[in-house]
Amino acid sequence: MLETNKTLCYSGDELVEVLKEIEYILISLHKLGAHYAETLPSSYLEYADETTKFIDDNNISEKLANIRKILSSKFDNSLGVDDQDDLERAFEKLEYWKPRK
């Protein structure tokens, strides 16, 4: 990792924005799960539908992309000898969702 990426500084406003988004998503999903917890598994389809609806109707992917943008904006994205920056290198072994066979 580049020395400049070992310590990053964010403004309080940036961190408050990130934490507000995380809080909204986390608490909302917790409340959604708690609401259906007592009736699962019989209400699983309704729970899954409501979770999907929450994600879609509240632009959760956009909120997460904004969090990523704020947090990654401070990184020096200079390429190393492997032709990758520090974040690319850190993410290269992540296993992303893929359809079941």
Rank of each mutant, 00 (worst) to 15 (best):
M1S: 15
L2Q: 14
E3Y: 09
T4P: 02
T4K: 10
N5T: 10
T7S: 08
L8W: 10
C9H: 15
Y10K: 12
Y10W: 11
S11F: 12
E14H: 04
E14T: 03
E14I: 02
E14N: 05
L15A: 02
L15K: 04
L15Q: 04
L15C: 04
V16A: 06
V16G: 01
V16P: 01
E17D: 06
E17Y: 00
V18C: 01
L19Y: 09
K20C: 10
I22W: 04
I22T: 08
E23R: 08
Y24V: 04
Y24M: 07
L26A: 06
L26W: 01
L26C: 02
L26K: 04
L26V: 02
S28G: 01
L29Q: 06
L29C: 05
L32Q: 03
H35V: 00
Y36E: 01
Y36K: 00
A37D: 12
E38D: 15
E38H: 13
E38P: 08
L40V: 07
S42C: 12
S43Q: 14
S43I: 08
Y44R: 11
Y44L: 15
Y44K: 13
L45S: 15
L45K: 13
L45A: 13
Y47R: 09
Y47L: 09
Y47A: 12
A48T: 11
E50Q: 13
T52I: 06
K53D: 10
K53H: 11
K53I: 05
F54P: 03
F54N: 06
F54V: 06
I55W: 05
I55N: 03
I55E: 03
D56E: 12
D57T: 05
D57V: 00
N58Y: 03
N59K: 02
N59T: 00
I60F: 01
I60R: 00
S61Y: 04
S61D: 05
L64K: 02
A65F: 07
N66H: 13
I67G: 04
K69F: 07
K69L: 07
I70S: 04
S72C: 08
K74L: 09
K74N: 13
K74D: 09
F75I: 04
L79Q: 08
L79S: 07
V81G: 11
D83V: 11
D83Q: 14
D85L: 06
L87V: 05
E88Y: 06
E88L: 06
E88D: 09
R89G: 00
A90N: 05
A90T: 04
F91R: 09
F91Y: 10
K93V: 01
K93Q: 08
L94P: 00
L94Q: 10
W97K: 02
P99K: 03
R100H: 08
